[in-house]
C-alpha cells in the first residue's frame, strides 16, 4: 500500500500536476502519524500509511498556509472523503483544483470503524489498494447514540453537565473540523456577543449547542472533534443525533451523494413532523 502511495505522489509532484501532497508522516520518536506537506518529489519517503492514520486531513485544504503552497493532492480514507463532498456542495473547494488520493482502509482500530461502510473511497482521482464496502444498517451505525438516548432525560443532562464542566474552550473541535470554515466563528462575534465566551457551564452548553447545530445535516461523522478533544468529551453523540435525524426525516446522509441537496439549505412542502401544532 505504502509503495504505490508514495509512487503516485511522486508522479503527481514530478509532472507538476500538483505542488503539494497533504499526507501522513511520522518522525522516529513520534507516537502517532501527523500531517505532512510534501512539496519535493524526493521527499515522498516521508509519507507513511498505517493503522494510526486517523486524522482527517481535509481541514488543511481550507487553511491559508497550505493553500499558499499551490495546487494540492490530498490523501483521504473513505470516511474523510465525505467531507470533501460536502465542501464542494457548499462551494468551499473547487474539486477540479484538487487531486484526491483515496486509500482503501480496513479500519483504524476505532469503534466507529466496526460499523464503517466506506472502507473503499468512491470519489477519489487515484485509489490505492482495495477494500470492500459493507452495507451497515442505520441501527448499527447509530447504536452508540441509541444506547445513550435510552437513559432518562435527567441522566442525560447530568452526563453533559459533568462532561461540559471540563471543556476549557480550546476550540480544538472547531479547528480540526473539516466543515467548520467560518471566517469569523459566531463565538468570536462580540459586537454584540451572541454567546458567552467564558468556559463556564453556561458558556460551554451554549457553545456546544452552536457547534453541533451548525453541523446539523452536514457532519460526515469523521469523529475528528471527539478524537482531538483534550478533555475527552464525546462530541460525536451530539453530531450523531443530528445525522440520524437528517437521515430519518430527509433521507440525507451527508457526503455520500455529490448530487444531493443540502438539508438546511432546502425544504420540502412535504416535510413531516409530529410536534408543530
Amino acid at each position: 500500500m505504502l509503495q504505490p502511495l508514495r509512487e503516485t505522489c511522486r508522479r503527481l509532484l514530478d509532472d507538476g500536476t500538483v505542488q503539494v501532497v497533504i499526507g501522513y508522516g511520522q518522525a522516529m520518536r513520534a507516537v502517532e502519524p501527523y500531517p505532512v506537506f510534501i512539496t519535493d518529489p524526493n521527499d515522498v519517503g516521508q509519507l507513511v500509511w498505517n493503522e494510526q492514520c486517523r486524522t482527517n486531513l481535509v481541514k488543511y485544504l481550507l487553511r491559508q498556509e497550505i493553500r499558499a503552497l499551490g495546487k494540492p493532492a490530498i490523501v483521504v480514507k473513505g470516511c474523510d472523503e465525505r467531507a470533501l463532498v460536502v465542501l464542494e456542495q457548499e462551494s468551499q473547494i473547487e474539486r477540479s483544483e484538487i487531486v484526491v488520493i483515496g486509500v482503501a482502509c480496513d479500519g483504524m482500530a476505532e469503534a466507529r470503524c466496526e460499523v464503517c461502510d466506506a472502507h473503499q473511497p468512491r470519489f477519489a482521482d487515484h485509489t490505492i489498494g482495495h477494500a470492500t464496502n459493507k452495507e451497515q444498517s442505520a441501527e448499527r451505525r447509530y447504536a452508540h447514540l441509541a444506547e445513550f438516548q435510552e437513559r432518562p432525560i435527567a441522566d442525560r443532562m447530568d452526563y453533559w453537565k459533568a462532561e461540559l464542566e471540563r471543556c476549557v474552550k480550546c476550540y480544538a473541535c472547531r479547528q480540526s473540523c473539516p466543515l467548520c470554515y467560518c471566517q469569523r466563528c459566531i463565538v468570536e462575534k462580540n459586537r454584540p456577543a451572541v454567546l458567552d465566551t467564558s468556559p463556564t457551564l453556561k458558556g460551554n452548553f451554549a457553545w456546544h449547542i452552536v457547534r453541533a447545530f451548525h453541523l446539523a445535516g452536514r457532519c460526515v461523522g469523521c469523529d475528528q472533534c471527539s478524537r482531538v478533544c483534550p478533555e475527552g468529551i464525546d462530541l460525536r453523540l451530539l453530531n450523531q443525533s443530528m445525522a440520524r435525524a437528517s437521515e430519518a426525516s430527509f433521507g440525507h446522509r451527508s457526503g455520500t451523494d455529490p448530487q444531493a441537496e443540502l438539508v438546511l439549505g432546502n425544504f420540502s412542502k412535504q416535510d413531516q413532523e409530529q410536534f408543530i401544532r
Binding site: L145, F148, Q149, I153, A154, D155, R156, M157, D158, Y159, W160, F205, I209, A212, F213, A216, G217, L237, L238, S241, M242, R244, A245, S246, S249, F250, V263, L264, N266, F267, D271, E273, F275, I276
Partner: peptide, 17 residues
C-alpha cells in the same frame, strides 16, 4: 426552512437532556 431546522434542533435538545 424553520420547520426543517426545528425537526433537527429538537433532536439535539433531546440528546443534551
Amino acid at each position: 426552512h424553520a420547520r426543517r431546522r426545528w425537526m433537527l434542533f429538537r433532536e439535539l435538545l433531546a440528546t443534551l437532556g
